[in-house]
């Protein structure tokens, strides 16, 4: 049954290799001059890639009950809600709302 899935060595070692390679790419990318917003996007995409490998293989989400994956995605969703709505304030502090201007 899914709860007792044994992850094969091939997957575990493969995941570790992928993570190290992605780390090297992340560090390497930081030395290349990428214009401002894109350097952050590249770094974060690589971080999300690594996070997916850890969650999917090391934490066994691929073989696990879907509810656990949902829990993780929910935490992400609510983090996005929190930062997204907070930014609506902090980024627009000095901007008058269009109806009033």
């Amino acid at each position: 049954m899914s709860g007792h899935h044994i992850i094969s060595l091939k997957y575990l070692l493969g995941a570790a290799t992928a993570l190290v390679v992605l780390t090297i790419i992340t560090v390497g990318a930081s030395f290349i001059e990428i214009p401002r917003p894109f350097d952050l996007i590249v770094a974060l995409s690589l971080a999300f890639g690594k996070a997916t490998v850890v969650a999917a293989i090391f934490m066994g989400l691929i073989w696990d009950k879907k509810i656990n994956t949902m829990a993780l995605l929910f935490s992400l969703l609510f983090f996005i809600i929190m930062i997204g709505i907070t930014l609506l304030d902090t980024l627009y502090r000095d901007v008058p709302f269009w109806i009033y201007s």
């Binding site: 709860g3 696990d64 009950k65 509810i67 656990n68 829990a71 993780l72 929910f74 935490s75 992400l76 609510f78 983090f79 929190m82 930062i83 907070t86």
Partner: peptide
């Protein structure tokens, strides 16, 4: 299964706990 779901829910709280600092 129950223990794992419980742990995942705890990890959700951890993500949101660190989430405050990320915000």
């Amino acid at each position: 299964d129950s223990s794992k779901l419980g742990m995942w829910l705890f990890l959700v709280t951890e993500v949101l706990f660190f989430g405050g600092l990320f915000v």
